[in-house]
């Protein structure tokens, strides 16, 4: 059993060139902030290392941090410029019984995160959902299509904070 602090030390020792941070300021599980472009090898290490053995990806979810500048146009529609989108990985080791949460952040304008599908197969659909809802592109994903919304949905990514629902979809009125 390792606590987040110990896991952070192991990661820092393994990847001296990468930056890691521990965030314990929120009243939720303590989480490690990692680099979005190195998450694949970090995940691989978390899954394979004898002391960690995180063999289960319990959940992978996208989050719109909404920390950019909010801009209002003439019609009163609000859009967010800049800031970040995040991906959270909730890991669990069935062999050791410990947990860790990892967060990576990426720029809102061109959100790209490495896929961890080759580490945990379950990430495939989770990443498709994060792509569907937030537009986060997962590099090296085998099949990055929308999973819940229709394939021809062109109105954007519904769970982004500045999302506007379209008036019509395929001739059907969408608004109430």
């Amino acid at each position: 059993m390792k606590n987040p602090q110990e896991i952070l030390e192991i990661l820092k020792a393994q990847f001296p060139n990468l930056e890691f941070q521990l965030d314990a300021s929120l009243p939720v599980e303590t989480f490690i902030i990692a680099d979005a472009m190195a998450i694949n090898k970090i995940s691989n290490f978390l899954a394979e290392n004898e002391e960690l053995l995180f063999d289960s990806l319990m959940n992978l979810s996208g989050v719109d941090d909404a920390n950019g500048t909010k801009v209002k146009d003439e019609e009163g529609n609000e859009t967010i410029n800049g800031g970040t989108l995040s991906v959270y990985y909730h890991l669990y080791s069935t062999k050791i019984g410990h947990k860790i949460t990892v967060r990576v952040s990426t720029a809102r304008e061109n959100p790209e995160v490495e896929s961890v599908e080759n580490v945990w197969k379950t990430a495939n659909w989770h990443e498709r959902e994060a792509f569907d809802m937030f537009g986060i592109k997962f590099l090296n994903h085998s099949d990055l299509r929308r999973i819940l919304m229709p394939y021809d949905w062109e109105a954007g990514y519904p769970l982004r904070k500045d999302y506007k629902n379209p008036e019509f979809y395929q001739g059907m009125k969408v608004t109430y």
């Binding site: 919304m149 519904p158 999302y163 629902n165 059907m172 009125k173 969408v174 608004t175 109430y176």
Partner: peptide
């Protein structure tokens, strides 16, 4: 009529009588 999704249901048709 869309039920509980009437306002924030971006994915829901607000009543099947629309089609």
């Amino acid at each position: 009529c869309g039920g509980p999704y009437w306002e924030h249901g971006y994915h829901v048709l607000k009543g099947v009588d629309r089609i």
